[in-house]
Amino acid sequence: AILKKLPLAGLSTESFGGERMMEHFNSEKWGELSESCLGCGTCTFVCPTCQCYDIKDFNTGHGIKRFRCWDSCMYSDFTKMAHGNPRLTQLERFRQRFMHKLVYFPANNNGEFGCVGCGRCLSKCPISMNIVKVMKALEVK
């Protein structure tokens, strides 16, 4: 009885994976899902499967050193290149995060999802956004 009350009750991964990529990518639901996201990036820093980073050069006073620094796909300057940023809006960055976990990663990793279900993102998110909420909203019936 308790399990039926949990957010994961009835959750299925059948609607996700590479074969549904464009169907999910073009979904109108991204707008309402991303609207409340603050873009703070906390979810990405506590996620054990997030691995985004940036390369920075620093003058240490004893020469230039190159460092690999943690970064977040939720930030507006993430992957900023000479021509600009490929994801200009919060909606695009939000969509990228969840599409990576639910569609792109499984498509390239034998169907395994980029989420281990630990709940760290939910426990630290100031608006309680989580992958279960996104999956249920995007679920194809």
Rank of each mutant, 00 (worst) to 15 (best):
R95C: 04
D57Q: 12
G84K: 11
F25K: 11
W30T: 05
E32V: 12
M81D: 11
C73N: 09
L91V: 15
A9S: 15
A137S: 13
P106K: 03
F67W: 06
S72K: 04
I55K: 09
H62R: 13
I127W: 00
S72E: 01
S123V: 03
V140A: 07
S27G: 11
Q51P: 01
T49D: 11
L138Q: 07
G31H: 15
C40E: 08
G119M: 05
A137F: 02
G84L: 09
S72P: 03
L102A: 01
R93F: 01
S76P: 00
L6T: 13
P7V: 08
F58I: 10
K101D: 02
G31S: 15
C121M: 04
C115W: 01
F113L: 12
K101E: 03
W70P: 02
L6C: 05
S12M: 05
G111C: 02
D54Q: 14
K133I: 10
S128M: 03
V116F: 00
T49Q: 15
C125W: 01
E112P: 00
T42P: 02
C47M: 03
S128A: 09
C47T: 03
L8H: 10
G10Y: 01
Y53I: 08
T89K: 04
K141T: 13
R120Q: 06
K65N: 11
R120E: 05
P86G: 06
V46D: 01
R95L: 07
G119H: 01
E139T: 14
M22H: 09
G119N: 09
S36Q: 13
C118S: 10
L91R: 15
C73A: 09
P86N: 06
L33K: 08
E35L: 13
V46R: 04
N130L: 06
L38Y: 14
D77I: 13
D77F: 11
S76C: 00
G111Y: 00
A9C: 08
F58C: 00
H24R: 08
T42Y: 05
G31V: 13
C118V: 10
C50G: 08
H62S: 13
L102V: 01
A9Y: 12
T60H: 10
F45D: 08
I2L: 13
E139H: 11
S15E: 07
Y75W: 12
H83W: 10
F16Y: 10
Q96G: 05
E28A: 10
R97W: 12
Q90D: 10
C40W: 02
P86D: 06
C73G: 07
L88Q: 13
F113E: 02
T79S: 11
V103G: 02
R97H: 14
C121W: 00
I64P: 05
C40A: 15
T49S: 09
D77Q: 10
C125M: 08
R87S: 03
D77S: 10
F78A: 09
E112L: 07
R20G: 04
N110A: 12
L11T: 14
N26Q: 13
A1T: 15
L11H: 04
F94E: 02
A9V: 04
S36T: 15
Q90K: 12
E14N: 13
I64N: 11
G117Y: 07
